[in-house]
Design a protein around this nucleic acid. Structure first.
Lengths: 282, 282
DNA sequence: TGCAGAATGAAATTAAATTTCGTAATATGA
DNA sequence: TCATATTACGAAATTTAATTTCATTCTGCA
């Protein structure tokens, strides 16, 4: 049995101008179409709504709705890896953007699997297991990951520190020892603040874990342990919205691994914290 | 990831009479439902059309249409039968966990599409367009999203504020006016700190946008605009690692929409900021 | 050149989804 | 116990989407 998309593809030559335009759009973005209305699809493919209906009939579907359902079924089974698309188009509505972002973020997380080195990950987990203090540092977009990590590891009972303030960090690092871990977060691996603090921490004897894009950046080279995130595409104008997702996925992994390790010991404390929270009704 | 049908099944006891009737019918004939209209389904299950809509919202879907699409996907996949998995198993290596987390986070982002209401999203974007000050507030795991949002909107040139400190926020809110927007972030929608500040902000006349799970929580009810995230499963011991991903996806959407709106005006400023950063070699 | 016939989109119509609103039932609390 | 919320629900109104109708344009051919 032929898939609906390939059926459209093979019917393309027989279709009229307007219908072919529709078909081409559908082939391009089959995953997006089931969520659309005739109006949207007509705008996207540059034809009238009436033509959409005619198109559906042409390829043997009773109605636009039936067609959408059939297409969704098709796409679900196909499990196609959709390739790229440009994030910004002038006519995009917020809802369009929303779906694009879902797609982009999903793919970003998916590609995490490619860039991660399993040995480095194991080393990172070992280092964390033995760590006394954990220091996270990232600036700009990477501060999100630092804040998140700090919160999570505090929940696990770690002495876990982060700050956005370079000078605060500067005053903190002299107190680090070989038992401590400094997690440097920088997508590019070139951020000067992050590099300087990493070097300083390393000089103090702390283990430096770099959470950075997979490339041979200074941070990558200088770190003791490298947790690499994929080189997700980024729009030069807006920066990457997705690199943060990849960083957080790695943080989640570290968190879950540590939870796994010390897990049962802290469960009771989680309960206590939650119960206390409830009694304070917060 | 639980299937939608089994999710409905387990939610059944919590639903009201009419909604339970609907749920029971869906469990009985899940394959038939995607092709039905609200009218048909209401007749089959012996309730009103309005209840159908309410049912969809109750189980975490933005609309009847998205529900049908999700159900179809579910039914389609049921044949190919992907089994779910529990996140924690004793033998899991960090690398195993990593892959599981990739999977879980991906699914969480994917299911964002189901819970988002397109009208509410449009309303949120409109509100942001006209806003003077933006205030973000979230505690615990939700603070990540607040921090991220604050950073992003500052980059866009907004007067954008967040803090983890309840008392700081308390002193800030009296200065809000009708022109300002307060974005309340709480997965459960019940966090007392968030609720109290939202109410206060609303009393001051600010527009309150809730970024919360789709459920009928106090925050959901009281907000002017509701941006709903899906009810991702969470381990009672570790809390949800994924709800943050869904929140960030919504933040990304708002950010991109605003960028889209005021976009070209700020591009030059982005360049300036980057050039300055480079000249400072940071 | 002018006519038949196909292709197309704008506007009208029909159908479906969603919201609003009033009522009844049930919980809450003084 | 009685007043007061709160909740659940369906009927009707409204909004939104799908489909049909119909006028216009284009194309090929006598």
């Amino acid at each position: 049995m032929k898939s609906l998309v390939s059926k459209i593809e093979s019917n393309l030559p027989q279709l009229s101008e307007a219908e072919r335009r529709i078909g081409e759009y559908i082939i391009e973005r089959p995953d997006a179409v089931p969520h659309m209305t005739t109006k949207e699809l007509s705008e996207k493919s540059g034809v009238s709504e009436a033509s959409i209906i005619r198109f559906c009939k042409s390829i043997g579907m009773g109605s636009f709705k039936t067609f959408k359902l059939a297409l969704l079924k098709d796409v679900t089974l196909m499990d196609t890896n959709l390739t790229d698309f440009s994030v910004l188009q002038q006519k995009d509505s917020p809802y369009d953007l929303f779906h694009k972002i879902i797609h982009v973020n999903k793919s970003a997380i998916e590609s995490c699997a490619d860039s991660m080195d399993r040995k480095e990950l194991a080393k990172a987990v070992e280092a964390l297991k033995e760590a006394e203090k954990l220091v996270f540092f990232g600036v700009g977009g990477s501060s999100t990951a630092a804040v998140d990590a700090q919160y999570k590891f505090t929940k696990l009972g770690y002495h876990s520190i982060t700050s956005l303030d370079f000078h605060y960090m500067l005053s903190l690092i002299p107190h680090l020892t070989e038992k401590d871990v400094f997690v440097a977060i920088s997508t590019s691996g070139k951020t000067k603040d992050v590099l300087e603090l990493s070097r300083f921490a390393k000089k103090r004897g702390a283990k430096v874990i770099a959470l950075t894009n997979i490339n041979k950046s200074p941070l990558y080279k200088e770190a003791d342990i490298r947790l690499c995130t994929p080189n997700v595409e980024q729009d030069f104008r807006i920066g990457s919205i997705s690199s943060r997702m990849t960083q957080l996925t790695v943080i989640d992994t570290l968190y879950m691994s540590m939870f796994h390790h010390i897990g049962e010991k802290v469960v009771q404390k989680y309960y206590d914290a939650r119960k206390e929270m409830e009694s304070l009704r917060r």
